[in-house]
Design a protein around this nucleic acid. Structure first.
Lengths: 99, 99
DNA sequence: TCGATATATCGGCTTTTCTCGATATTCCAA
DNA sequence: TTGGAATATCGAGAAAAGCCGATATATCGA
C-alpha cells in the first residue's frame, strides 16, 4: 500500500466526487439497472455525472484502482467500479496512528 | 477543512517525510536543544534533514500549515513547527465514514 | 462475420506543481 | 543602529498532472 500514490489519487476534485458518488450508487446513479449495482457502477454512468470525456474518466478510474481505492468487475462490454472499503479503513487507521 | 487541499498537501514525498519526522521530534532531530521541542522543530533543522533548499522547505511547511496539518510558533528569529494532531484525528474519521 | 457499443490507451496541449536562486523581512546582538 | 542569522516571498525553468480528441481493443447482436 503506497501512501503517496493514494494521496495523489485523492488530490483531484473529480476523483473525490467519484468516490463520494460510489458511496451510494443507487441514490447517485438512478438510471442504472438495479440488478447491476452488486458489481458497482459502469464507466458510462460515471462519465455522464462527471461531465468529462470518456477517456479522462476512464483514466481517473484506473488511477483510483492503481491506488487500491476501487475495484472493477468486467461484465460483458461493461466495466463496473465499486469502492474498496477495506482500503479506506486501512487508510483511516494509518492516518490516526501513523503517517 | 478543505479535503482537497489536505490531500494535495499530503501528495508529496518530502512533505509526508516531514510529518513523519515531526511525530517524534526528539528522535529525529537530536541536534536541537531539548527545551525547544515544546514548540516543535525549527525550519533549519527540517531543511537539513530534508536535503532541499531553505526556500523549498519553507514553502512546504506553509503548504502543510495552510492545510491545517501543522501549526507554527515564532520564538525570536526561529519558527517552530509541530503537528496538529487534531487535524489528523479529524481526517481519519472523515476517511473512515465519509469522503 | 460485421457493425455497433463500451472501455482503454495514446499523443499532445494546457495548467499546476516542484524546486531552485535571488531578494525581502524579521529579529537579535554588538 | 548596523551586521548577521533565520525565515519568508518572488520569479523562473523543468517536470508532472489535467484533460482532450483520435484510435485501439473487447464484446455483443444480427
Amino acid at each position: 500500500m503506497d501512501h503517496l500514490e493514494i494521496f495523489k489519487a485523492l488530490s483531484n476534485k473529480t476523483r473525490l466526487d467519484i468516490l463520494s458518488w460510489l458511496k451510494e450508487p443507487e441514490a447517485n446513479f438512478p438510471e442504472q439497472e438495479a440488478e447491476c449495482f452488486r458489481h458497482g457502477v459502469c464507466v458510462g454512468q460515471i462519465r455522464q455525472k462527471a461531465g468529462l470525456t470518456q477517456s479522462t474518466v476512464s483514466e481517473y478510474l484506473s488511477i483510483l484502482q492503481r491506488a487500491g481505492l476501487v475495484k472493477s468487475t468486467r461484465v460483458g462490454q461493461w466495466t463496473y467500479y465499486q469502492r474498496n472499503e477495506e482500503a479506506f479503513q486501512h487508510l483511516s487507521r494509518l492516518i490516526e496512528t501513523g503517517i
